[in-house]
Computed example of a mutant assay.
Amino acid sequence: MSASPSGAGATSGTTASNAETITGTVEAGVEPNCRLIKDDAGSHLLFFDDSSLKAEAPVGRKVTVTGRSEPKMMSTCQQGIPFIVSAVRPA
């Protein structure tokens, strides 16, 4: 399954029991329309549950994202651990 970071192919339903939080600065990926955020675990490729969340996490902004890692999810971005974002807030 290929998905775009804008949310196509992303699934909803992150629950409090499996939610993760990452704080960092959003960076552009090497492929167009790919966004990454880094933490101590490495780079995470951002996919957005809701396309309106993408506007809250532009490249260059420091944010805190909540969601879940999907390490087996395939992507055309070819970098980072896919991370399904369910919430974004300023850091």
Rank of each mutant, 00 (worst) to 15 (best):
P71T: 07
G60T: 00
T15F: 00
A28P: 05
V85H: 05
E27D: 08
S51Y: 12
K62T: 15
Q78I: 11
E20T: 12
V26T: 07
R89T: 15
S12M: 11
S12C: 09
D39S: 08
F47G: 09
S17Q: 14
V59A: 01
E27I: 00
T64Y: 01
A8S: 12
T23W: 03
M74L: 11
A41Q: 14
C34F: 00
L46Y: 04
E27Q: 13
T66W: 03
D50A: 13
I84H: 07
I37Q: 05
V65I: 14
D40G: 09
A91G: 15
S69W: 00
V65S: 05
T66V: 09
G29T: 01
A57H: 10
L36Y: 03
S86I: 00
R35E: 07
V88R: 11
K72S: 13
V85C: 02
E56M: 14
A87R: 10
G7W: 05
I81E: 13
V85K: 14
V88E: 04
N33T: 07
S51M: 12
M1W: 12
V63N: 05
M73W: 01
F47K: 02
S17Y: 03
G42A: 06
L53S: 04
A91H: 06
A19I: 03
L46S: 02
R89N: 11
T11I: 14
V26G: 01
T14R: 04
S17I: 04
V59Q: 01
R35D: 03
D40L: 07
S4N: 15
P58V: 01
G42R: 08
L53P: 04
A28C: 03
F83W: 05
E70C: 02
K54I: 08
D50S: 11
T21A: 11
N33G: 06
R89V: 15
I84G: 08
E56V: 05
G24D: 09
E70D: 12
G9W: 02
L45R: 13
T11S: 12
G67K: 08
F48Q: 10
T21G: 06
G42H: 03
S51Q: 14
M1T: 10
V26W: 04
K72Y: 01
F83A: 06
A91T: 13
L45G: 08
G13I: 08
L53F: 06
T64K: 03
P32C: 04
A41G: 10
S86T: 06
S43M: 04
P32D: 14
P82H: 02
G9L: 08
R68A: 15
G42E: 10
T25A: 06
A91M: 06
T15H: 15
N33Y: 14
T64E: 15
A19M: 07
D40S: 15
V85Q: 08
A41L: 12
H44D: 13
P58K: 10
T76Y: 13
R89Y: 09
V85R: 11
T66C: 06
G7T: 08
R35N: 04
F47I: 00
S12L: 12
F47W: 11
S6K: 12
V88M: 11
D39I: 09
G13V: 04
I81G: 00
G9M: 09
A91C: 10
A55V: 12
R89L: 08
G29N: 11
